[in-house]
Amino acid sequence: MRTIHYKIKRFDGKREWYQDYQLQYEKGKTILWALTAIREQLDPTLVFTSACRHAICGSCAIKVNGKSFLACKTSLDEVLETFKSDYLVFEPLSNFEVIKDLAIAWEPKMEKMKQVKPWLIPSNKGSVERGFIQSEDDFHEISSPTDCILCGVCTSECNQLAVNDGTYLDPFILNRAYRFSVDSRDCAPEEHIRPVYENELWKCIHCMQCISSCPKGIPLTDEIAYLRQESIKMGEVNNQGAKHAFAFYDDVRNKGRLNETMLPIKTDGLLKTATTKIPFALRMIKKGKINPFHMPKAIEGIKGVKEIYKYAEEVKHS
């Protein structure tokens, strides 16, 4: 008989420990089945949250062997196959406060989410009497972001949140801001986007964890790109993130390739670069990694590249 070994992180409010459980293998089960079986058959003191069992309520996400999953939607067989092991470690989601065992606190996250005004700010095109009618195409703009079930998997996997002081907004909060800012019935997208910009929008590292782990397949990183584009349109260009992106954008248009020597200066300005990046620059020069006198020549076909830029400008304004 095949036995699956579960090591579960416990927490009673003061003390943390790992506890071992074993269940006989059964085919075609889910992670939530394992949690429920452990609680019902082995240890009634184990605390975890769950409700709908159909990937709708978003309450049962946990970490398994370091990766975050929605327990009811995740096949145990797939997890065993992924990790090529019959030993599984269950832990609460990362980047959340833990209440007990696998149960995490959502209240602080909800408070944080209020900053982006996660509600519709209606335009005067609609009214309670007339309704707030939306075309099918307009609905499709919000159909994917409204799939979010607030399960917290994206937050748990976010590499910026793992090292951030808590200011940076969780991916599901960015999604909420996106969802209302693109809603045709909303008249104040800036009210959703400005708080996003002001809470370290440019600190997203582009690690792709959120888009890769979302159980609903929401294109979170595309949404973050959109929020950044909109913040630029709002005039927020005088920051390291936007200046860094423009350094690439301008270099490709002018020469086709990045000028690495000039990149810090374009991002941080001459003064800050001179005061903070000197040791870095010296060690790079010493190893031949930066040649301060090397200026890349324009690539073959740069004229065509400039035409591509012109075309993209026209598309943007059409």
């Binding site: 582009h206 950044r228 860094h244 992106a245 390739r257």
Partner: peptide, 16 residues
């Protein structure tokens, strides 16, 4: 005549 790939930055200005 290859160009920079955009390095995961250019889409933050213009994804097209």
């Amino acid at each position: 005549g290859w160009t920079c790939c955009g390095a995961s930055h250019i889409q933050d200005i213009d994804d097209f």
